[in-house]
Nucleic acid binder design. Structure first.
Lengths: 338, 338
DNA sequence: TTGTAGGCGTTATCAA
DNA sequence: TTGATAACGCCTACAA
């Protein structure tokens, strides 16, 4: 069953004793081709398992039907869920995706970009590394007319670009509002690293919810962690050490640090521990197995973020949106009560 | 900075007033080209951001430096972790990966396969869908000389193929042995769906460990679940209802069902609950947040499975291993004590 | 209705 | 040391 000679149009043409162009047209259902001829060609193509060579078509059509994705890490839940969305939507529209991870290393990001440029991807979706401040390796794409959509990670040094971001402000606002509505007046906020944009967006959501509901703000109710476990613990200590403040609720940057916080408070038998109500970003499926679960989660809908990035990219590829008409798409979070 | 005319060798040649072939050779550092010429060409190429067109090269060289990956679902942790391994290793060796998910749907799997065939991937790594019994859509690849490595999901209907699988027998053996060494004589086994190969491999690991250590086997200590929550609960009820048996330890097919089991036993205040020691496949990072965590986890090393699949594929592509010399690679699990 | 010819961008062979 | 030419596989305008 193995065949060494690759099946090409030329090969089919010789077998059928007709010209390459007739074979091509027959396979592509050209109206000018005789029905009987079409049938003969199509049968032969099927029997011989003819598969058109995409490289040849790409070369001819000057497109690849491939979307490049650059992201930091394939072990991060958020990213894998977002890829799920991208892949789904891409496949539905006849595109394949090539994925490249950078491990948050700028050099790797540059390499990945160059690789994908060579591959003549029709579009690029990218979550930049932590250290990306110069965008020349990504700007190359737009210079060649290949649209780029930045997603998840906000490229704040790059003003003129298309972005799709989670509406983390809204998510945090909603969570805070939810806690206020449940009667809490002392709501602590545990933020992430200060260099991350999201940290501030979320803080703004928190503080705006307080303000809009006439809940007094106290800076003692705010702390930050760089995700390191010890760092998180000491932040939590600060928040809960002050007897005057005594927060009764907590909004956390993401669930893993929230779980660390809960674990810690429990371990020290924090006085009114069972009264404290917590919410974090994430909505991990394991929450149902926790003995002291958060009262709700802020679901960031990564699949939707991915899908929206792909949708925007497709509109750019199809020129439904002009490439210089820079878009900013915000994908809302959803509060999930457990 | 935008340029409409694509930068090709021809374009460079015209600018430099030399022939296309000279430009090509200069860029590829041919020894026959004058140093000064090389320099001129390379500078111009850099300044104009020349990027070789991979489609053209693919067409010429009859290879794509792309590896196709077909798998059921990008939301499954095991698969995303395995992709991490594949991507790493592929990138290191100059290959890109195209990922396609099938959602365990055979038709999608066939579509994906055809897509990747058109793309002339240099190799294919595939975790087959639950319903794949006919392999013709995948056999096409080998018929065209493109190597295929099956991984994770064992294609038991397909004898002549390369496979890379987790050594789930060994993992379960080790876990059972570990519990025996801790003095347990009544160890329950909670298996997965009976149609899955792994269910039986793991059961064999369990039973062999019992046998090798002279622990009597009792069929009342074995139950199966199809992962449905209610189904899991009723399986657990069966295992623990029988007063004569009273298992003191439990080995579970995977952690989510183990967590369901633990939660249930706790909820009914099962008498000697705190004495029961459990182990499941997975090693979820959230274990540290559980109040009644398993005593150990069976780590399946998905990244390593992915990397091994990619390594084997590379050897096949490079003809270091003959394509008919079918390989079976087992990747050992590791018992992680918490 | 079918065939001829040229081109997509690159590399390689051979001639100059 | 450089250049002309053919080829990779496919598509299509135009000629027959």
């Amino acid at each position: 069953m193995k065949n060494n000679t690759p099946i090409t149009l030329k090969f089919l043409a010789e077998k059928l004793k007709m010209s390459v162009s007739t074979v091509s047209k027959a396979l592509n259902n050209y109206p000018t081709i005789n029905e009987y001829t079409k049938k003969r060609v199509q049968e032969m193509a099927r029997d011989l398992h003819f598969t058109p060579n995409k490289s040849a078509i790409n070369l001819k059509e000057k497109k690849s039907r491939i979307i490049g994705i650059i992201l930091p890490n394939l072990l991060d839940h958020f990213f894998t869920r977002s890829i799920y969305g991208v892949e789904q939507f891409a496949t539905q529209n006849g595109y394949n995706i090539i994925i490249s991870q950078t491990h948050d290393d700028l050099q790797k990001e540059i390499q990945s970009a160059n690789m994908l440029l060579r591959s003549r991807v029709d579009g690029l979706i990218v979550a930049i590394s932590k250290h990306t401040q110069d965008f020349s390796h990504l700007d190359q794409f737009e210079n060649m007319g290949i649209p780029v959509v930045y997603y998840t990670r906000n490229p704040s040094f790059n003003l003129n670009c298309h972005k799709v971001l989670g509406n983390t402000f809204q998510g945090c606002y909603q969570a805070t509002k939810f806690l206020i509505d449940r009667g809490h007046q002392k709501i602590a906020y545990l933020g992430g690293p200060k260099m991350i944009n999201f940290t501030h967006d979320r803080f703004n959501g928190y503080i705006n919810a307080l303000k809009d509901n006439n809940v007094p703000f106290s800076s003692e109710l705010v702390a930050y962690t760089d995700f390191d476990k010890e760092n998180t613990i000491s932040a939590i200590k600060n928040l809960f050490a002050n007897e005057d403040q005594n927060p009764t609720a907590l909004v956390a940057f993401k669930e893993p640090i929230l779980f660390d916080a809960i674990k810690y408070l429990k371990s020290i038998n924090y006085p009114k521990f069972s009264d404290i109500e917590c919410i974090g970003f994430g909505n991990t499926s394991f929450i149902s197995y926790l003995d002291s679960p958060p009262i709700a989660s802020i679901e960031e809908n990564p699949e939707s973020v991915g899908e929206n990035a792909m949708r925007l990219l497709l509109q750019l590829i199809n020129k439904e949106i002009q490439i210089e008409d820079y878009q900013k798409v915000m994908v809302d979070c959803k509060l999930v009560v457990h």
